[in-house]
Design a protein around this nucleic acid. Structure first.
Lengths: 331, 331
DNA sequence: TTGAAAGCGCTAACAC
DNA sequence: GTGTTAGCGCTTTCAA
């Protein structure tokens, strides 16, 4: 099916060099005769030609392929990020290979190995843990851009949201409308992004002259189950809250479910804040504040850092992407 | 960095064949001496070895890579499907390349070309239109598994949900609890999966002895905007509905937004049905029936068909995957 | 302007 | 049990 350069050359009684030069648009530069050019072009027109990437990769030792490793893509933030990043990469001729770790630290290392074996030109990774991150930094002798989680202990290229500023802005805005305690349900403070959100919230409290560290309800899991447990214990100890913030969408899902289980419904007067925007937040009858991450800018920044690393630069920047508050008012 | 087989052979004063045989676990079979084996194994232990996929691909004319083309992965159904399929493929040593068309028919064709140039061993595609499908069938001389949409005019391998049965079951169940008109909001009947859902619904009406074709509200767009318009016009002509089904989640999102805009809230007594399950459906204060698609089975079936096609079989089956009703009751 | 040839790392066929 | 070698399709260097 796919004609090779050599085949074309043979068909036309030309050398591979000649054919290559016109195929790669260098015809003018090497002053190939117009007649030869058109003979080649016609042949390609008729029989087609598709470059064999494997051969090219073998020769040049680069695949024009990049890897992306995220926890999972059923999470809409990572899905959107993957989408945008794939688009951006393709725009520059790179194919993106998307893989999910499902928060399995061993599987994450396996994925890295698999992608390295396929000789990707670079890797975008959302590391699960500090240990994973350090492992990758040692293992991967290729351009690497870390995403979402700044575990520290590295000056590698990294892109993340401005979570602290986001937490601050979210809490500030909610405090303006909520007189009652503004609880903060945190799943998994081992994740730096979550901790930053918490710190932003605490900062906002401080600015408002409030000092209620006990408004923070912490748990180990950044999941619906984790969120359920948090809300459950909050209701146990304090009754149904009047206002709360969830540290992420999965936590919110669990928290809402707990509210429904415990109170039979989601009381409309509760003011709800959350990180990560989602159209289905509009399903809640409540006023909802959500902190949206800007995946377009993420993709742009991440690719730019990758490109520079591929070009040989020692990239050690951390790009912080601004978040945006979205408010849905109960009517 | 990555040692080549030849390098290892030279270091150890052996031939490439010997090294290859032990690396590929054929040492016993070819009765390589234990001593030679351990020399090789030790060397690999110390210096490592990573197979060069590009070279292998070039030689064998296969990449152990598969392509997946879906409309987008911010849609949670396609995201989950992509996730499951990636897992399944990796389990058999295949890397999956996930790409999104964003419903752009020309871009879809470009993606196919790009993946073919990278010499994928096979392609999973959710075609946007019949024309696209036919184009692919002509263009792609590789194993191909169509997903989600049976446009007809082909006996190619295909996996889809049992949408008609799903529509029937969903409507039946809702009719048991809803005396009032059960509206059906349909976005884009050009999509066969959507039409099947509609037909299932009509079948359920018929079985119940109801003949109200006018309960179907049709529009051109399977999107939130489309759903908004549908609900908007329904309220205009019939007032706020007591029960309705949305043909997909995006349509539901728009419909809910219209309800909120028009009535100031989402009236809790409305019974809501929808296709595609999502945890955030629990955010609605209403009773909600949702028809869940079984992505695990999809992935399993799709990969099985692909595997058989790769093995040279002329696969022309259509696999229909059962859907499952999920009910959330208002309390 | 065009041609010839080496070599990327692997596999497989064949030799001893 | 082990060794040699051709060739996959491309890029690049050197020649003519």
């Amino acid at each position: 099916m796919a004609k090779t350069v050599e085949q074309i050359a043979k068909d036309l009684n030309l050398s591979v060099t000649t054919v290559r030069l016109v195929l790669s648009g260098k015809a003018e530069q090497y002053r190939i005769s117009v007649k030869t050019q058109s003979r080649i072009n016609e042949h390609v027109e008729r029989f087609g030609y598709t470059l064999n990437h494997s051969a090219r990769s073998l020769k040049l030792n680069k695949t024009e392929t990049l890897g992306l490793i995220v926890p999972n893509i059923s999470n809409v933030f990572f899905a959107t990020l993957a989408e945008k990043l794939e688009l951006r990469c393709r725009r520059s001729g790179y194919q993106l290979m998307i893989s999910c770790t499902y928060n399995d630290v061993d599987y994450e290392n396996k994925l890295v190995k698999a992608l390295m074996a396929r000789n990707v030109d670079g890797l975008f990774i959302v590391p699960s843990t500090l240990e994973n991150q350090q492992h990758h930094l040692r293992q991967i002798q290729k351009p690497l851009v870390l995403l979402d989680r700044d575990f520290g202990f590295t000056d590698n290229a990294l892109v993340e949201s401005h979570n602290e500023a986001g937490g601050d802005e979210l809490a500030r805005n909610m405090l303006e409308e909520c007189k009652t305690p503004l609880w903060f349900l945190v799943g998994d403070t081992a994740l730096p992004s979550i901790t930053d959100r918490l710190n932003g919230y605490l900062q906002a409290l401080k600015t408002a002259g409030i000092h209620h560290r006990e408004w923070v309800i912490e748990g180990p899991d950044n999941t619906p189950e984790g969120g359920y447990a948090l809300m459950d214990s909050l209701i146990d100890s304090q009754g149904v809250p009047q206002a709360f913030i969830a540290s992420s969408l999965p936590v919110l899902e669990g928290a809402i479910e707990a509210l429904r289980k415990r109170t039979g419904t989601v009381p409309q007067h509760i003011n709800i804040g959350t990180f990560d925007e989602h159209p289905m937040l509009g399903f809640l009858p409540n006023s909802v504040w959500s902190m949206q991450q800007d995946e377009d800018t993420w993709a742009e920044k991440a690719f730019e850092l990758m490109q520079r690393a591929i070009d040989g630069e020692a990239v050690n920047e951390t790009a912080k992407v601004d978040m945006k508050l979205v408010k849905r008012s109960r009517q």
